[in-house]
């Protein structure tokens, strides 16, 4: 799993708050709560193809 990491920003600069996940099956991206991905306990469900997979098995992830 590759990760697009962002460098931490100083507090006066805007930053994002949503993680994006690329589906293991169809590779489409969808937004996900960061803690859901980091905990890696619950299977995600792709809204594009309905595939279920653990966050660690995502094709790719993008941190906020």
């Amino acid at each position: 799993m590759a990760e697009h990491m962002n460098t931490p920003l100083p507090h006066w600069e805007k930053s994002g708050n949503v993680m994006w996940v690329s589906c293991r099956s169809c590779r489409e991206w969808f937004p996900c709560a960061a803690e859901l991905v980091s905990q890696n306990k619950i299977e995600l469900v792709c809204p594009h193809c309905a595939a279920c997979f653990k966050p660690a098995d995502a094709a790719d992830t993008m941190n906020p």
Partner: peptide, 10 residues
């Protein structure tokens, strides 16, 4: 309701 997609959660 804010007009944005609520992300996937548990």
């Amino acid at each position: 309701y804010p007009g944005y997609v609520g992300v996937q959660i548990a």
